[in-house]
């Protein structure tokens, strides 16, 4: 067993199984398995998942549509955003 997404505890086997089930894009794998939705937001796992998916589909990694990068880049406490409204 090889853990690929450490935040959400997802293994290589689970990723391959999902691709076999028809989740053939990175966005779909992300929603189906929650890979890349934890504190690291895919910075650790997404490159590995891209590699697994590209290999399974017989494509180059460059041909895969990447997932949307969403803010913030790193987890930050909410109060950092709220200070300007403080009286």
């Amino acid at each position: 067993m090889k853990i690929v997404c450490r935040c959400e505890d997802v293994t290589e086997e689970e990723i391959i199984e999902a691709i076999d089930q028809g989740y053939t894009t990175l966005e779909e794998l992300k929603r189906h398995l929650r890979v890349g939705t934890g504190p690291c937001q895919g910075r650790t796992c997404m490159k590995i998942i891209e590699k697994i998916l590209a290999k399974k589909l017989g494509k180059n990694i460059d041909e895969l549509k990447k997932t949307t990068v969403r803010p913030p880049l790193k987890p930050v406490p909410l109060y950092i955003y709220g200070d300007e409204d403080e009286e």
Partner: peptide, 21 residues
């Protein structure tokens, strides 16, 4: 969001946001 959340559940302002969409 944070400003209103702070009025309703002040402690929740300490939670870490990971993603917005």
């Amino acid at each position: 969001f944070t400003s209103v959340l702070g009025k309703i559940l002040p402690a929740f302002k300490n939670l870490n946001i990971v993603r917005q969409w």
